Amino acid sequence: HNLTITQGKLFFHYNPKLCLSEIHKMEEVSGTKGRQERNDIALKTNGDQASCENELLKFSYIRTSFDKILLRWEPYWPPDFRDLLGFMLFYKEAPYQNVTEFDGQDACGSNSWTVVDIDPPLRSNDPKSQNHPGWLMRGLKPWTQYAIFVKTLVTFSDERRTYGAKSDIIYVQTDATNPSVPLDPISVSNSSSQIILKWKPPSDPNGNITHYLVFWERQAEDSELFELDYCLKGLKLPSRTWSPPFESEDSQKHNQSEYEDSAGECCSCPKTDSQILKELEESSFRKTFEDYLHNVVFVPRKTSSGTGAEDPRPSRKRRSLGDVGNVTVAVPTVAAFPNTSSTSVPTSPEEHRPFEKVVNKESLVISGLRHFTGYRIELQACNQDTPEERCSVAAYVSARTMPEAKADDIVGPVTHEIFENNVVHLMWQEPKEPNGLIVLYEVSYRRYGDEELHLCVSRKHFALERGCRLRGLSPGNYSVRIRATSLAGNGSWTEPTYFYVTDYLDVPSNIA
Rank of each mutant, 00 (worst) to 15 (best):
E417Q: 10
N435K: 01
G325W: 10
Y498M: 15
H352Y: 05
S341C: 13
V299I: 14
S367Q: 08
E433S: 15
E420G: 13
E310K: 02
E442Y: 14
F289I: 03
N208S: 06
R218P: 12
S248T: 06
R313T: 07
M427C: 09
D273K: 10
C266F: 08
S344V: 06
A399D: 00
C231Y: 07
F298T: 06
V296Q: 11
L293S: 02
P338M: 12
I209Q: 13
N360M: 08
H461W: 10
C231E: 04
Y445H: 08
K361V: 07
E260T: 08
I418L: 11
H416D: 10
E260R: 08
L470E: 02
E378S: 07
V397K: 09
Y292M: 05
P349Y: 11
S304F: 14
N421H: 05
E224Y: 15
N383V: 03
V439R: 13
D222Y: 06
L505V: 11
G306L: 08
D229E: 03
E378A: 07
Y230L: 09
V457T: 03
P434C: 03
D291W: 04
T210L: 08
V296T: 07
S479M: 06
C269H: 06
T307D: 10
I276Q: 12
L225S: 04
R446P: 00
I377D: 00
V480W: 04
G374K: 14
S305V: 09
R370Q: 15
P244F: 12
A309V: 12
S444Y: 13
V359Q: 12
A394G: 13
V345S: 12
A394S: 07
V414Q: 04
R400A: 11
K406W: 09
N295A: 03
R301T: 07
A463V: 09
D273P: 15
L464V: 07
W216S: 05
V297M: 08
I276R: 10
D261G: 07
S342N: 12
T485S: 11
T307G: 05
H425I: 11
E495K: 09
V457C: 15
A263L: 12
N422Q: 09
C468M: 13
E430H: 12
V411C: 14
D250K: 08
K233N: 15
P434L: 01
R370L: 14
G476A: 03
E290K: 03
Q256H: 04
P413G: 13
P244E: 13
W493L: 09
T373K: 05
E224L: 13
Y375S: 01
I418E: 12
F462G: 03
P496Y: 14
L235P: 07
N510R: 08
Y500V: 12
N295F: 01
V424T: 05
R466D: 11
V359F: 10
N208T: 03
T502R: 12
D250M: 11
E356N: 11
V424L: 11
V345N: 11
W428F: 04
Y230W: 08
S509I: 15
L232R: 15
G264Q: 04
E224W: 15
R240G: 14
L440Y: 07
P314V: 05
E404A: 04
A263C: 08
A336H: 03
G412M: 13
V329H: 05
L237E: 15
M427F: 13
N383T: 05
F215Q: 13
V327K: 15
K236C: 15
D503G: 14
W493E: 04
E465Q: 14
T373Q: 04
T386E: 11
T485V: 04
E362H: 07
G449Q: 09
V443C: 03
I438C: 07
A463N: 13
A407K: 04
L225E: 05
S458C: 12
F285V: 03
P245C: 13
E217T: 14
W216D: 02
H454E: 15
K271C: 10
S284T: 09
F462R: 10
R319L: 06
E260F: 04
M427A: 12
D291M: 06
D385K: 13
T497W: 11
Q384S: 08
D450V: 14
P354S: 12
G472C: 06
E442P: 00
F337H: 13
L321A: 10
I482G: 03
P238V: 05
D273I: 15
V359H: 14
F337E: 10
K287Y: 04
P475D: 05
S444A: 06
F462P: 03
D409W: 11
R447H: 08
Y259R: 14
N326P: 13
V359Y: 11
I438M: 06
D506Y: 09
E310L: 14
C468A: 07
Y441L: 01
S262E: 02
G264F: 03
E260Y: 12
M427H: 15
I418S: 11
L237N: 07
R240N: 15
A263V: 11
P314I: 03
D229C: 04
L228N: 11
P314Y: 14
V501A: 08
N255S: 06
V480G: 05
A335L: 13
Q384M: 09
L426A: 00
G489L: 03
S509M: 09
G308M: 14
E389W: 10
V324F: 05
R301N: 01
Y230E: 03
G374F: 13
D503Q: 13
N360S: 11
Y500E: 03
S367M: 04
T415R: 12
T288W: 06
K357A: 15
R318L: 13
G368P: 08
C269Q: 04
N295G: 05
N435R: 01
R353H: 15
Y441K: 02
Q429C: 14
L440T: 03
L455E: 02
K460N: 13
S248C: 15
N326G: 00
K236R: 08
E388D: 05
R240P: 15
P238R: 02
K361P: 07
Q256F: 09
S304Q: 10
Y504E: 13
S251D: 12
E389A: 07
C269S: 03
Y504C: 10
E362I: 10
E465I: 11
G489Y: 12
P475A: 10
T497S: 09
R376H: 07
G412H: 05
E362M: 12
I482M: 03
G374T: 05
T307F: 07
S479F: 05
I418T: 12
Y445D: 01
T502H: 06
G374Q: 07
A463W: 11
W493V: 00
F499R: 02
S348A: 15
P314R: 15
L379H: 03
S274F: 09
V324P: 12
H211K: 06
H454Y: 14
R218E: 13
V501C: 11
S341G: 09
N360I: 15
L237H: 15
H454G: 15
E420Q: 15
D222W: 13
P300R: 02
F289L: 03
Q256K: 11
N339L: 11
R483D: 00
R376L: 11
P387N: 15
G325S: 14
C231M: 06
D291Q: 04
S304G: 13
Y259S: 12
V414M: 08
T272F: 05
F246H: 12
H425A: 10
V411I: 06
G234Y: 04
R483P: 00
G467V: 08
L277H: 07
D229G: 04
S268E: 12
T307A: 06
V365Q: 12
V501P: 03
Y500H: 08
G234N: 04
D291T: 01
A484I: 11
Y498T: 11
Q380D: 05
A263K: 06
V358L: 08
S243Q: 08
I377L: 13
P244L: 13
R316L: 15
C269I: 04
E260M: 12
G234C: 15
P270R: 10
W242V: 08
P338K: 06
K271L: 07
N339F: 08
A395G: 09
F462Q: 12
T373V: 14
P245R: 05
